[in-house]
Write a protein that binds this DNA or RNA. Structure first.
Length: 872
RNA sequence: GCCCGGGUGGCGAAAUCGGUAGACGCAAGGGACUUAAAAUCCCUCGGGGGCAACCCCAUGCCGGUUCGAGUCCGGCCCCGGGCACCA
């Protein structure tokens, strides 16, 4: 029965074995070195996709490899179970999100199990379980106590038809993606987490993460966006004082305090309080402010807008000259950065320049570049205008170079109480309120008498009712009195429960901590977290390079400061796997849209020597389709490959082998049906090689005792492949080349024909090495083959084999001979030959002699054991 | 606009510290087995020249450093990604 490889039977047997023996359930063991291998938890969308298969296979290979290296390996799995798709599914088929989500989890868990991942399922969690999200609520209350969580009015995209907040991605050309209604910017109260309090540490600690890809660290650093500059206060002129009926000053932040004498206007955001006051008696200004506040809050859209503005008629005074400067409302000033106001220096800032040109504002140059590249600032804009240089026309500060000018101006401002040096971050506080049903309730109560009252700890968790189904008309919690009606914990009076839920990024910010103690009912985490954390290897998509990874780092630091644990950087090593790509085929529809066809159903055909592609529509019609290149597998472009079909046809090992072999993990992976066939072919070849070998009985002798040249050569090949796989998996994380080494070794076994007892022992050893070294990648087939090779113990419990250095030693080595750097011959020499011997032998070579051609040898460079270059 | 990656056969890729460019796999072509097909096995497979031994060219383009460059340096072209009026 073993003659034919039957993946379904082989995989069932191996998986049964692991399950029966609870192979992957782990416990803390102070005596063993731990290895926490974590893959990003999936959203339970319904079915696994290839991205999941790739992600979890990478994690599983590392987990199994480390297990063989003797480490106490934790590889958990859970579900990022709250979120929008469940609500959308509820709207289209009237199923409560809870039921839809839990059904999906059931199904996807069985899919994960069919792939044979070595997961400790006893630690599984779902973020929609009250036993999990109660601790979101608990920590939120601690943050509230510390002032890290706070309430503030925030600007959101508001869909007036659905009565709901839209994420930026849900706003398409200014309209709601579902309703098509014009989206409004609306200010609503939201809860924020003060991540900016940790900006400095989040930035600085990136240097302590050598195991992270450089580009992820750069992306985070850019996102945090640290700027050194000055805060400058421009005192209100009398007109502003009376309009606001207050004394005071308009504050701005600038990185170019040296250009302070070049200010010709002030620009404030439409949301700035002064803009609101100024527009009250000015309908035209009010209309402009209104226009600015409508439309997308997406910054990429804002960035491409024309610079527009309108004067307020109000003024401030220059902090040094005392001259009045008019305040303008400008659409390019962001309320959410700095002070929501800027000093307009058109001569030295491109945006201010554009604005001044459009509005006929004065341009005053106050910096001369060191190269003297320009004298007068005039249109068109020249990038040199914004270069650092020597201050001119700047009163007492004239003649100073950038740094000195900033120092002197900052000091002078500070003396007058009109400014100071300050660091500004681009990072904003994290707004976590979502006007959504399917999420973790925010544990607050609004009382008419007591105001905002936290839910007492003993009343946690605030349970989310699971029987509701949104219908598109806003958050159903708002229409469920049983949820929102409550008593105020302070005064006992009638009160209203907060109906907003938390951003799902909250859920995924600490799940990796909870895996260490999922059964802990009394605390968020316990002492087990100290054993397992930090995560040794984290694996996930590059799309989480900023938000998820930054939030998790922040959350960890908050928990450290609350002394819940000592760890302050959660992920020691990070591997960001590339996307899985497939071909895209589509045709235009009569409505001018595109209709996409799955590549599996596309038939290529040659017509008059031109390649054309055809597909069949759901109506059974044959249509001609266009090839659209490669793209990420996605629903919208209908180019996904269902892992389930792949496993049914070829088995999980083939799916795993293909995804690991086709490209290195960080790079994109191009789907190839032929490549899958190739992976399957290799597994069958390995299967028959082992069975053919053992059919002749197990050899008695030891491989190390072989004396034949071919035997020694195969031993060398086997140990060389093993050394390569050890380094490739363990250090380089290049699984494709480790697999190639295994294939090469199997090819060598195929060519090997020494049927003597010694030869068979060497062959046996080589097959054992292949089985062991590939077992992390194709664990099921290796489980079967290891038993076939005569072993009692399961391969999963075997240690990683040691390289026999003695087997790698060669008696003779091949030298490449170059003449003037060009390859001219090869010579075989005894290992350890001295330079002179190498040189003599090289010059004696006929081919080499031809190219030396009697010319005097000027130089000969010898790379021991490898190469000699003769320079003539 | 700024900041990262990356350009190597027909294709996915390899070459890890400056030392034999193209390992491994896919596709293709040829052959064996077969009534036939599939599967399997063997051979060829960057381009050009040569009867052959071999030679020349070739890692996006131009230049440089070096005995020697896919790899290092300078300049450009193209592709992908991130951020994007951040004052």
């Amino acid at each position: 029965m073993d003659e034919i490889y039957d993946p379904a039977a082989v995989e069932r047997a191996a998986q049964d074995y692991w399950e029966r023996h609870r192979t992957f359930e782990v416990r803390e063991d102070a005596g063993r070195q731990k290895y926490y291998c974590l893959s990003m938890l999936p959203y339970p969308s319904g079915r696994l996709h290839m991205g999941h298969v790739r992600n979890y296979t990478i994690g599983d290979v590392l987990a199994r490899f480390m297990r063989m290296q003797g480490r106490n390996v934790l590889q958990p799995m859970g579900w990022d179970a709250f979120g929008l798709p469940a609500e959308n599914a509820a709207m289209s088929n009237r199923v409560p999100p809870a039921r839809w989500t839990r059904q999906n989890i059931e199904y996807m868990r069985s899919q994960l199990k069919s792939l044979g991942f070595g997961i400790d399922w006893s630690r599984e969690l779902a973020t929609c379980d009250p036993s999990y999200y109660r601790w979101n609520q608990w920590l939120f209350l601690r943050m509230l106590e510390k002032g890290i969580a706070y309430r503030k009015t925030g600007v959101v995209n508001w869909d007036p038809v659905d009565q709901t907040v839209l994420a930026n991605e849900q706003v398409i050309e200014g309209r709601g993606w579902r309703t098509g209604a014009l989206v409004e910017k609306r200010e609503i109260p939201m809860y924020y987490l003060d991540i900016t309090r940790y900006a400095e540490e989040l930035l600085g600690d990136l240097e302590r993460l050598p195991g992270w890809p450089e580009r992820v660290k750069v992306m985070q650093a850019n996102w945090i966006g640290r700027s050194e500059g000055c805060e400058i206060a421009f005192p209100y002129a009398p007109d502003t004082r009376s309009a606001l009926s207050a004394d005071g000053a308009l504050k701005v932040f600038t990185t170019r305090a040296d250009t302070l004498f070049g200010v010709t206007f002030m620009a404030i955001a439409a949301e700035h309080p002064i803009a609101l006051t100024a527009s009250s008696g000015n309908p035209r200004l009010a209309a402009f402010v209104d226009e600015c506040r409508r439309g997308s809050v997406m910054e990429a859209d804002v960035a491409t807008q024309d610079k527009k503005g309108m004067p307020t008629g109000l003024h401030v005074l220059h902090p040094f000259t005392g001259k009045p400067i008019e305040i303008w409302v400008a659409n390019y000033v962001l309320m959410s950065y700095g002070e929501g106001a800027v000093m307009g220096v058109p001569a030295h800032d491109e945006r201010d320049f554009e604005f001044a040109l459009k509005n006929n504002l004065r341009i005053a140059a106050v910096v001369r570049s060191k190269t003297g590249a320009y004298e007068h600032v005039q249109a068109p804009w020249n990038p040199a205008y914004s270069e650092y240089g020597i201050s001119v026309d700047s009163g007492e500060f004239s003649g100073l170079e950038f740094r000195a000018a900033v120092d002197a101006i900052a000091a002078a401002l500070e003396k007058r109480g009109l400014g100071r040096r300050r660091i500004q971050y681009r990072l904003r506080d994290w707004g976590i309120s979502r006007q959504r049903y399917w999420g973790c309730p925010i544990p607050l109560i609004h009382c008419g008498r007591c105001g905002e009252v936290p839910v007492p700890d003993e009343q946690l968790p605030v349970l989310l009712p699971e029987d509701l189904a949104p219908d598109g008309s806003g958050n159903p919690l708002n229409k469920t009195p049983a949820f929102y009606q409550c008593v105020c914990p302070k005064c006992g009076g009638a009160a209203r429960r907060e109906t907003d839920t938390m951003d799902t990024f909250v859920d995924s910010s600490w799940y990796y901590l909870r895996y260490t103690c999922p059964d802990q009912a009394r605390a968020m985490v316990d002492e087990r977290v100290a054993y397992w954390l930090p995560v040794d290897q984290y694996i996930g998509g590059i799309e989480h390079a900023i938000l998820h990874l930054l939030y998790s780092r922040f959350w960890t630091k908050v928990m450290r400061d609350l002394t819940l644990m000592a760890c302050d950087e959660p992920f020691t090593n990070l591997l960001t796997q590339g996307m899985v790509l497939n071909h895209i085929y589509s045709c235009a529809t009569t409505e001018g849209r595109r209709r996409y066809f799955n590549p599996a159903g596309v038939r290529p055909r040659s017509e008059n020597g031109v390649d054309i592609f055809e597909a069949t529509t759901t109506e059974g019609e044959t249509v001609r389709v266009e090839y659209g290149g490669l793209g990420k597998m996605s629903k919208s472009e209908n180019n996904g490959v269902d892992p389930e079909g792949l496993i049914a046809r070829f088995g999980a090992d083939t799916a795993r082998l293909f995804t690991m072999f086709a490209s290195p993990p960080e790079q994109t992976l191009e789907w190839s049906d032929e490549g899958v066939q190739g992976a399957s072919r290799f597994i069958r070849r390995l299967w028959s090689a082992v069975h053919e070998h053992v059919r002749q009985g197990l050899p008695a002798g030891a491989a190390a005792g072989t004396s034949s040249d071919v035997g020694k050569a195969l031993r060398r090949a086997a140990h060389h492949a093993l050394a390569k796989a050890t380094d490739d998996i363990g250090r380089r994380r290049n699984f494709n080349t480790a697999i190639a080494a295994g294939m090469e070794l199997l090819n060598a076994v195929g060519r090997f024909d020494d049927a003597s007892e010694g030869g068979r022992a060497v062959q046996h050893e080589a097959l054992e090495i292949i089985t062991l070294m590939l077992s992390p990648i194709i664990p099921h087939v290796c489980h079967a083959l290891w038993h076939a090779l005569g072993h009692e113990r399961a391969v999963v419990d075997e240690p990683w084999p040691a390289v026999d250095e003695g087997a790698l030693v060669q008696d003779t080595v091949e030298y490449v001979v170059q003449v003037n750097g060009k390859l001219r011959g090869r010579i075989r020499l005894a290992a350890g030959s001295d330079e002179n011997t190498v040189r003599q032998a090289a010059l004696a070579d006929e081919q080499v002699a031809r190219f030396v051609d009697g010319k005097p040898v000027r130089k000969a460079i010898v790379v021991p054991g490898k190469l000699i270059n003769i320079v003539v």
